[in-house]
């Protein structure tokens, strides 16, 4: 009887040949003394560390570069003035009638996501935006609108009338509060335009969890951005901006939403009757995302102490996450919120 030789594979080869059993071998080690961990060495609830750099781009009004492990996202926000004469179907706000959602109606926030060629092997050059990119930009846009984070008052451009030349400059902060009501037109001032914010998100490197990384980048860029003081010049019939650096204003952002994503891996590869074990992996990387069908994303805002608001919850692809587990996941999301808050400050 010839002695059978056991073929020896390196861990990388095993991982490449059969990724699902490799992942399970790490999560459920045969040797009970070894702790269960993910293939990337993290614990199931452990996220990758977040690195945020802001203001790295010169020509954007606000920018941020976010690294979440090997996922690198660059977000640039560029503001462009939009005179009301150039808005189709412009309807001046009236004191009667329902309040108009100006940000949504006039498209004042324009997010776009680009998954750059080479950021991951599956993104090919010269193809139209992939379904993933389109889904991500819809989700970003929805969250930007539904969170109500950007205040339309920061984006309004007024005509400077003769008599309030000086007042306007000084009460920059003050008039933010009084204008929040439904009647934006105060006597003596006419609304002449808006700032439209073009929010461009580029993935320089893609290693899973794109939405969390993109959202943090948008959040950091918006927190970082400054708008010049702008007014409508009646003589030139155009919007003019002040070049003075001291007159640049930050946006007054409402709330601090942070998203947290997790994926569920089941013991049996796409089990027909899933009764096996499963693991909820927070902040999945690209390899894990490919092996997981079910995923959950929760956007929480813990700005007000002891009162966590959920702004968005999206779970699809399987039946493992039930009510109790989603309640438990909120804890993870709250911890993530603390980490992100700390990273952005």
């Amino acid at each position: 009887m010839a002695q059978s030789t056991v073929p020896m594979f390196s861990a990388q080869t095993f991982a490449k040949l059969s990724p699902h059993p490799y992942m399970l071998a790490n999560l459920k080690p045969s040797d009970p003394s070894r702790p269960s961990q993910r293939t990337n060495g993290r614990q199931p609830k452990q996220s990758r560390t977040l690195q945020v750099n802001t203001s790295s781009l010169t020509h954007a009004n606000g920018s941020a570069m976010v690294r979440l492990g090997d996922t690198t996202v660059i977000c640039a926000v560029r503001a462009e003035s939009l005179p009301v004469t150039e808005i189709p179907n412009y309807r001046p706000a009236s004191s009667t009638g329902p309040p108009l959602d100006e940000i949504a109606s006039y498209d004042l926030l324009v997010p776009n996501i680009e998954l750059a060629t080479g950021s991951a092997p599956e993104f090919l050059p010269g193809v139209p935006p992939t379904a993933l990119a389109q889904t991500l930009s819809t989700r970003l846009y929805s969250l930007l609108l539904s969170s109500g984070m950007v205040q339309v008052d920061d984006l309004r451009i007024w005509e400077k009338s003769e008599d309030d030349n000086d007042d306007n400059m000084e009460d920059g902060d003050g008039d933010g509060d009084q204008e929040l009501g439904t009647v934006p037109e105060t006597p003596g001032r006419t609304l002449r335009g808006y700032w439209a914010l073009f929010i461009d998100v580029t993935f320089a490197s893609y290693d899973g969890n794109p939405f969390d990384a993109a959202w943090i980048a948008v959040l950091a860029a918006l927190h970082n951005m400054k708008l010049p003081r702008a007014w409508w010049d009646a003589d030139m019939e155009m919007v003019v901006c002040s070049p003075e650096g001291s007159e640049f204003q930050k946006l007054h952002l409402e709330g601090f939403p942070v998203s947290c994503t997790a994926a569920v891996v089941t013991e049996r590869d796409h089990a027909e009757h899933s009764v096996g074990k499963y693991w909820v992996l927070t902040d999945p990387d690209r390899r894990e995302e490919k092996l997981c069908d079910e995923s959950i994303c929760m956007v929480v805002d813990c700005s007000r102490r002891g009162d966590t608001k959920i702004l968005n919850l999206s779970k699809a692809g399987g039946c493992e996450l039930d009510k109790a587990l989603i309640n438990e996941f909120r804890q993870t999301a709250e911890n993530r919120w603390q980490d992100c808050r700390a990273a952005l400050e």
Binding site: S146, D307, K309, L313, K315, D322, K323, I326, N327
Partner: peptide, 18 residues
């Protein structure tokens, strides 16, 4: 009765979701 899909939007608390 297994939860298959959950999509929520707006501002809500855990109790409201429950």
């Amino acid at each position: 009765g297994d939860l298959l899909l959950s999509q929520s939007d707006g501002s809500f608390s855990q109790d409201e979701w429950d």
